[in-house]
């Protein structure tokens, strides 16, 4: 027996045919590519070429795009990225031309996600930083357990409406719901808004009934700096999605803040 060599077979093979360089951009074809291979390849390409923009096409459900890409790159996604888009993400900007699925921005640390469409459940779950813009509606439990720390403060902007448990356990950050596709009389869909909330702020444009709110938060008056913040994000939203930002500010907002930093302080018998 000769010399024995060890071969590790775990690394997927790179298929560089999927990568094309066009006008200084990188175009990446993800058609039927397994997410692990996509993400490995993506990392390799970014590492080697350090492009400013990379566009990925034919994305259908591949998960974890943007996870562990710790560099300033803009990733354009054409199609429907899979769950946990940008999970744990720290740095990149992702723009989705289509809808995003569940877990978009899960535990995100920094960066930006712009969705030209809707996003699924638990969008922005446990996010600690960065900004997420969703043009249309979002699903359940969106923005739950968002938190903030020092300079890090996540912001989630939703153009449409959200469903139940919006901002549940929220511990920081800013959650904005513009309710753009609703009439003045229509109320937002979400029930149990901000259940267990103990930090951060929720702004909702349009009608929200008292019973839709969790017990741990309360409405407060919009002040000048709130309006300034709304204007800032309305402007950014409009920049992303081609909307008239003044139109967004023409309706009243409800500002929701936690009543206590310790929502469950009285739950226990000490």
């Amino acid at each position: 027996m000769g010399r024995i060599t060890l071969i590790n077979t775990s690394r997927p093979e790179n298929d560089m045919n999927r990568v094309k360089f066009e006008n200084g951009r990188i175009r990446f074809d993800a058609d039927r590519l397994f997410y692990k291979d996509l993400n490995f390849l993506l990392r390799d390409v970014l590492k080697e070429h350090k492009p400013e923009i990379i566009s990925i096409h034919n994305v259908y459900g591949q998960r974890y795009i943007g996870t562990n890409l710790r560099q300033n790159v803009k990733i354009e996604i054409y199609g429907t990225p899979g769950n946990d888009l940008g999970a744990f993400m720290d740095g990149p900007t992702i723009e989705v031309f289509g809808n995003a699925q569940d877990g978009c921005g899960n535990t995100m640390n920094s960066g930006e996600i712009v969705v030209h469409g809707s996003a699924g459940d638990i969008t922005g779950f446990a996010a600690r930083g960065g900004e997420i813009f969703v043009k249309d509606d979002v699903g359940y439990r969106v923005g739950i357990h968002m938190k903030e720390y020092q300079g890090k403060k996540p912001t989630l902007v939703i153009g449409g409406t959200a469903q139940d448990f919006l901002g549940e356990y929220m511990a920081g950050g800013t959650l904005i719901v513009f309710g753009l596709y609703m009439s003045e009389e229509q109320r937002h869909r979400a029930d149990f808004i901000g259940t267990g909330m103990h930090g951060g702020t929720i702004y909702i444009r349009g009608k929200v009934e008292e019973h839709q709110l969790g017990k741990e938060l309360g409405k407060v008056e919009m002040k000048d700096d709130d309006w300034a913040l709304m204007e800032e994000y309305a402007y950014k939203y409009a920049e992303h999605f081609g909307y008239n930002h003044k139109q967004i500010l023409n309706r009243d907002f409800v500002k929701l803040v936690p009543l206590s930093l310790r929502p469950y302080g009285k739950l226990y018998a000490y």
Binding site: G79, G98, V138
Partner: peptide
Amino acid sequence: SEEAPMRLVCRDLEYSWIPKG
């Protein structure tokens, strides 16, 4: 269960939405 498969088989899907529980 996910949006992507619908779009994969119907690339010009008109509407998609998240139904209420």
